[in-house]
Amino acid sequence: MIGTPYRGRLAPSPTGLLHLGHARTFLIAAERAGGGTLILRNDDLDTQRSRPEFAQAMLEDLAWLGIRWTEGPQPDGTEPGNFGPYAQSLRGSLYTAAFQQLSEAGFLYPCICSRKDLLSAPHAPHAEDEDEPLYPGTCRERNPESDEPSAWRFRVTDGEEVSFYDALLGPQTFIAGRDFGDFVVMRRDGVPSYQLACVADDAVMQITEVVRGRDLLRSTARQILLLRALGHSIPAYAHVELMRNERGERLAKRDAARSLRYLRESGLTPQEVRKMAIEEIE
């Protein structure tokens, strides 16, 4: 993508209030966008936890923090840009088309395994791991009954190296079948996975660099495989160090005392909060 105008994105999920860790990532994303285009996308596919009030709060809190984006929903209700709608819950046809393309090309297979099944299997990840368990391939060669509810998995090539250069963390290499296995692209309830939706949106929105937390490094390896399978260009990547609490645990949306809304209502200025978000990594 050398010579291509910069297009970055912020992609928060409205499942709670944004916290200092989000502020760190989004401030770095905005800084890296520089004079290029910065998009805000509402990643609201988690219909059980996403709330309209959290979506509005994230717009208001990011704007209060001093972050400006040029495409996507604005706090005043407008939505400039040519790639809308910018809420994933309204972009289902795009994900269906990507799913069908992968299916017709033979990359997918149905899987009836539950998350409970996978967590009880050998080599299941620790609770601290960022995503789905390493899949043991149980359903790879299974012939499912037509009436069985199934998720759909992307079949990886065991032993394949997926390498990329991270602008913040340096060279990264992951091995399919060791660091991650066959992964879900469509849940059994018909909701596309984070991996599929993210890839489809980033490709259509012409994102040139993805900036997000380092807990998503393995997701990046998976998404590179999806991008290749769909015939899309691979963006650049920059993964930000996570912010942790005094116990060494990464911040979560349940940490209300560190939410931007709480800090804002406590009387802190945007400048003070920006300093809190970035001072530990300078």
Rank of each mutant, 00 (worst) to 15 (best):
A11R: 04
S13P: 09
P14M: 08
T15N: 13
T15K: 06
H19M: 10
G21P: 05
T25Q: 00
F26S: 00
A30E: 03
A33I: 05
L40K: 03
D44M: 02
R51Q: 15
F54M: 05
E60H: 11
E71P: 01
P73Y: 06
F83T: 13
S89P: 04
L102A: 09
P110R: 07
I112N: 13
K116D: 13
D117N: 09
L119D: 07
P122N: 09
E128W: 02
D129F: 13
E130Y: 05
P133A: 07
L134P: 09
Y135K: 04
Y135P: 03
P136W: 04
P136A: 05
G137V: 13
T138E: 11
C139M: 09
E141P: 00
E141R: 14
R142M: 12
R142Q: 14
D147I: 00
E148H: 04
P149V: 01
W152C: 00
R153H: 07
D158T: 13
V162W: 06
V162M: 11
V162H: 08
F174N: 02
I175R: 11
A176M: 02
Q195K: 03
C198M: 06
A200E: 08
A200S: 15
T208E: 14
E209L: 12
V210K: 09
R212A: 06
L217M: 14
A221C: 10
A221I: 07
A221V: 09
I224K: 05
I234Y: 01
A236G: 15
V240I: 12
E246Q: 15
R250N: 14
L251G: 10
L251S: 12
L251Q: 12
A252V: 13
A252N: 14
K253H: 12
A257H: 15
S259N: 09
L260W: 03
L260Y: 04
G267Y: 11
Q271H: 08
K275S: 12
A277Q: 01
I281N: 10
